[in-house]
Amino acid sequence: MSNAQAQKVHNISLRIQSDAADVPAARHAIESFYQSHGFDKQACEDVGLCLNEALANIIRHAYKEQPSRPIQIDAALSPDSELTIRIRDWGNGVNPAALPPTPAANDPLTPGGLGMICLRQMMDIVVFTPQPDGMLLEMKRKKRSPEPQNQQASAT
C-alpha cells in the first residue's frame, strides 16, 4: 500500500429527516460502508445498532417526534482503522450523557436506557458535544483483532 493510499480517509455522508422510516436505510448504508472497508460482520452490526439507537434518541427526545427535521450523519474510516460516526441534530440540545441513569440500568424490565447501554458497550468512545443550536454525537471504534484461528488448522 502506498503512503497516499495508507493515509486516505474514507467517508460517507447522509442527510436524513427525523422520521423513523429513514432509520433502516441509514443503518444499512453505514453497515455496508464499513463492511466494504474490511470491518467484520460483528463490528458492522454493532455500529449499525448504535447508529439506530442514536437516531432513535434524536427522533424521540431531541426532536420530540417532530417530523422532517434534519439529521446529518458523517461516517469515516481513518488510516489506523478507527471508525468514526458523527451525528448532528438541531434539536433541544439536551445531553443524554448528562442525564441521571435510567431505572433500566438496574432493572431490565423497566423501559428506557437500552440505547445508551448499547452505545457504551459497543463503541470505544462516545462523546456528546452540545452545539449552540443542537447536539453533536461522536462515536469511535477501533478495528479489533480477529479471534484466534483454530490452532491445529493454522499449524498444518
Binding site: 445498532l49 439506530n52 439507537e53 432513535a56 431490565p108 424490565l109 423501559p111 437500552l114 440505547g115 448499547c118
Partner: peptide
C-alpha cells in the same frame, strides 16, 4: 431488533 422492539417484548411479557 432494536431497543424499541425489545420494549414491545417486555410490555407483552408484563
Amino acid at each position: 431488533m432494536d431497543s424499541s422492539a425489545i420494549a414491545v417484548l417486555v410490555e407483552a411479557l408484563q
